[in-house]
């Protein structure tokens, strides 16, 4: 049993090293811009997690990242290198924002219907890329990346020309009508944190249970670790691929809807893509070794970096891009480590 616990601790070692090196280089960049790196890093962390306001902002930001991370963890953990969470979130968010004002009735019904519509949209979009990849034997990674651009374009078009907010004061804002009914309740007073965060936590626990404790999760995991072994054992590989990616799409679509219903209350062009939620999600999942519960921690960490970056920019005049550099270095180190592991495995 003791050995097992050690193994469990080991899982934290690599991401911790990556984070440390990332912060170190963040410090170097700060030093270049004339800021004491130690005060800079402390301010960054304080600004991200150091006060109720900072923490609440971070948790709000972590919510869409966590949904993207969960979608990625299921896909990548099952051996499918899907980058599609971004596009699925965008379309989920858009459809949610379009459907919600049309639903008559009480808030909970509006939420339920618009969320369901978003989930289905995410699923359909994911299924499309899965189908193309399977039917034409092309790389899922590339197909999903391209589908992301496509989704973004579609969403842009519809918000600009079809569903543009008719009541908007600012005519140049590319956004849909603001929701008044069916908004997710806030958790603490007037702070931005909403019940969507709890839903994300619930989704993480649920996904952990499904992926570690059920037959489906078992088969998906074996499929990811050795697809030949899974096929040999009778796991229907095409069906598993479609099912897995369908669920991933659903989670991402849900993430998009939650961001609309909890934070923005409408679809604003670029609201998912420009903060890079999906990318951060994939990084968070990689950091956690595609473990759904681990992804909670890494998502909050990455969200905090962004929140802290904004604070540092305001307080010390360091460009917030420093957080992008830190994220980039962490990603680089984590992926490099994956490649090394993979190569080692291939050799032996």
């Amino acid at each position: 049993m003791k050995k097992l616990k050690l193994e469990w601790l080991k899982a934290f070692r690599a991401p911790l090293i990556a984070v440390t090196i990332g912060l170190f280089f963040g410090g170097v960049v700060m030093a270049f811009s004339g800021t004491n790196p130690i005060t800079g890093i402390i301010a960054l962390l304080k600004g991200g997690y150091g006060s109720t306001y900072a923490l609440v902002t971070t948790l709000t930001r972590a919510t869409p990242i966590l949904f993207a991370a969960l979608a990625a963890s299921l896909a990548w953990g099952s051996g499918y290198s899907s980058m599609g969470a971004g596009g699925q979130m965008v379309l989920g968010a858009l459809v949610c924002a379009i459907i919600a004002p049309l639903v008559p009735g009480p808030g909970w019904l509006v939420c339920l219907v618009s969320i369901a519509a978003a989930v289905l949209t995410g699923m359909a979009w994911s299924l499309l890329s899965a189908y193309i990849s399977e039917r034409f034997a092309t790389s899922l990674l590339i197909i999903t990346l391209m589908c992301n651009y496509l989704a973004d374009g579609i969403a842009s078009y519809f918000t600009t020309y079809v569903f543009k907010d008719p009541f908007g004061v600012d005519a140049s804002a590319i956004q849909t009508q603001k929701l008044t009914v069916g908004v997710l309740p806030k958790l603490i007073g007037t702070y931005s944190l909403h019940t969507g965060f709890l839903l994300a936590l619930l989704a993480a626990v649920l996904l952990w249970f499904v992926s570690r404790k059920t037959r489906f999760g078992y088969q998906a995991k074996m499929n990811g670790l050795n697809v030949n072994f899974a096929r040999y054992g009778g796991v229907p590989s095409v069906k598993m691929m479609l099912l897995t990616l369908l669920i991933c799409g659903g989670i991402a679509g849900l993430g998009g809807a939650i961001e609309v219903l909890g934070t923005r209350l409408r679809y604003v062009d670029g609201m998912i893509t420009s903060p890079g939620y999906a990318w951060s999600g994939i990084i968070a999942s990689l950091m956690a070794g595609n473990h759904p519960i681990g992804a909670i921690i890494s998502s909050i960490f990455l969200a905090g970096l962004t929140t802290g970056g904004a604070t540092v920019e305001r307080q010390l005049g360091v460009a917030s891009e420093v957080t992008l550099i830190i994220q980039g270095i962490i990603t680089l180190l984590i992926t490099a480590q994956l490649v090394i592991k993979w190569k080692k495995g291939e050799k032996s």
Partner: peptide, 28 residues
């Protein structure tokens, strides 16, 4: 015949995962 990065238990289960002895309503 196996997944090297999976546990012995996971490797032993392959082919048994549909038997009622080992799963109940899809739960291991």
């Amino acid at each position: 015949g196996s997944a090297r990065e999976a546990t012995l238990g996971e490797n032993a289960l392959m082919g048994f995962e549909y038997r009622p002895d080992f799963t109940q309503k899809g739960i291991l």
